[in-house]
Structures are given as C-alpha cells and as structure tokens.
Amino acid sequence: MSALTPAETRRYSRHIVLRGVGGEGQQRLKAARVLVIGAGGLGSPVIAYLAAAGVGTLGVVDHDTVSLSNLQRQVIHRTDAIGTAKAASAEAFVNGLNELVQFRAHPERLEAANAAQLMSGYDLVIDGTDNFATRLTTAKAAAAAGIPLVSGAVSMFDGQVTVFMPEGPQFRDLYPDTPDEADLPACEVVGVLGAVTGVIGTLMAMEAIKLITGTGTPLIGRLLLYDGRAARFTELDYGAA
C-alpha cells in the first residue's frame, strides 16, 4: 500500500483519527478498486460516499441517460446533465468532489456476456440495480470471480441490504426461487421515496468501507430490512457466515 500524501492526510483526517480505520485503513481505501453497478437511486449515495472516503479506483456501470424524473432521488446528477450518460454524469460529480479518485466509466448494460470482463480488475462489487434479473446476473458473476458483493434494493418506503462473500451464503440462498415480474413492480409503477434510496445506499457504502478496511461485522448471511414509515430496522438470517 502506498503512503498517504500530506494533502490526503488532511483530507481524510477524520478517518485517520478514527479508531478502527486509522492510517492503515485509509491506505486500504486508497488501494481499493470498487465497481458500482448502476448510477441511480442507490448508486448515487454509494458513489458519493466512496469517492469522499478516498476509494482509489471507482468504476461505474450504467447504460442509461439522466432524465428529469431521476433527480428526485439520484442526487449525484444535476438538472444540466439531463440527456447525458449517467456514467459520464457520475464521473463529473466524482471529479468535482475528489480529484484523487481514479474514475472508470462503463457506459453499457451489465449482462451475462460481459459481466466477467466488467468485473475484471476490481476487488469489490456493489449492486444498485433495480431489477431481479440483473441482480442475479451480477451475483453469479461476482461469485464466479471470487469477488465480494454488496447488494441493496428499494421499493416505495422500504429497502434492504446484504453482503455476499465468495465463501459465504450466496444470492440463491436468499432467493431460491425467481419471483414473477408481476410481484416486483418497477418504481415507475409503484413509486419510491427518494430519501429511502439515500438510507439504503449509504448503508451499502458503509458495508463496502467495512469490507475494505476490515473494521466491524459485515452483513454476511444477514439481510437488513428497513421500514421507512415505521422508522424500524429488522434483520433476517439466511445462512451462517
């Protein structure tokens, strides 16, 4: 791991004095290579907090363009970015926040045919996509590559987050059956409260930072559920870590 520069020491001073992170943890963040799938409602806070935290290499996969309806929850995108690629908009945000982060834009859709290539060179994957098929494809590819995966999802007022490790419980342990698409309506149909994506996306960033720095207990084999209306967290165990 490379030493921190004086500028980095000043920028990340609150991490460096934090027990459980410190200089070594910050060096691990600097050396980390993280791939975020989706620059939408969940990906936005993930990208923002990992860039602010000093993750050395941050890749973003998203084939979509910014639209007006995105701005209610996808907080890294600006009104003047409407019509531009989300990956490019995310890059502009990261460059403006922390020029020390190496950003890699992947303006394409993640599919079974390209998932392994997209994940090559990264040591952590974060899935913020909004459909079951892509989440399953991402989980399969991450498991095959032996890469840890932080996964989250939101709907209406609720959300969830968990961590899949190569040697731990897998996506199919949590979801043994593929649900009918009618049972998983898109947010365009049922809606989603913007702040819920902030809650879950920030929790996903937190899990990523824990995995990178080695501090705390990640959500391996545990699904953390958030009920926004009741302001209540519950936990579901789906396998031994």
Rank of each mutant, 00 (worst) to 15 (best):
M1H: 10
P6K: 05
T9H: 02
T9S: 14
L18C: 12
R19I: 00
G20Y: 00
V21F: 14
V21M: 02
V21S: 04
G25W: 11
R28Q: 14
A31V: 08
R33D: 01
V34I: 07
V34E: 02
V34C: 13
G38P: 15
A39G: 11
G41Q: 04
G41F: 07
S44E: 11
P45K: 08
Y49W: 04
L50G: 10
A51L: 12
A51E: 02
A53N: 14
G59A: 14
V60Q: 02
V61I: 09
D62G: 09
D62T: 03
V66Q: 00
V66F: 05
S67E: 06
S69Y: 00
N70C: 03
N70V: 09
L71E: 06
V75R: 08
H77W: 00
T79K: 06
D80M: 03
D80W: 11
I82G: 01
A85L: 13
E91P: 01
G96M: 15
G96T: 02
N98W: 14
R104Q: 13
E108T: 15
R109M: 02
L110N: 02
A113C: 04
A113D: 15
N114A: 01
N114D: 01
A116T: 04
A116Y: 01
S120G: 13
Y122A: 14
D123V: 00
D123K: 00
V125A: 03
D130I: 15
N131D: 07
R135W: 12
R135L: 08
T137S: 11
K140I: 03
A141C: 09
A141L: 15
A143I: 14
P148N: 02
S151A: 15
G152E: 09
A153D: 07
S155Y: 11
G159S: 06
V163T: 03
M165F: 11
F171P: 13
F171Y: 12
Y175G: 03
T178E: 03
D180N: 04
E181L: 09
E181V: 08
A182F: 14
A186C: 09
A186F: 12
E188Y: 12
V189T: 06
G194E: 10
G194C: 11
V196W: 03
V199F: 04
G201I: 06
L203F: 13
L203M: 05
E207N: 00
T215S: 10
G216L: 00
L219R: 09
I220Y: 05
G221H: 08
L224E: 13
R232K: 06
F233A: 10
F233V: 14
T234S: 10
E235S: 15
G239K: 07
G239R: 02
A240Q: 10
A240Y: 08
A241E: 07
A241W: 15
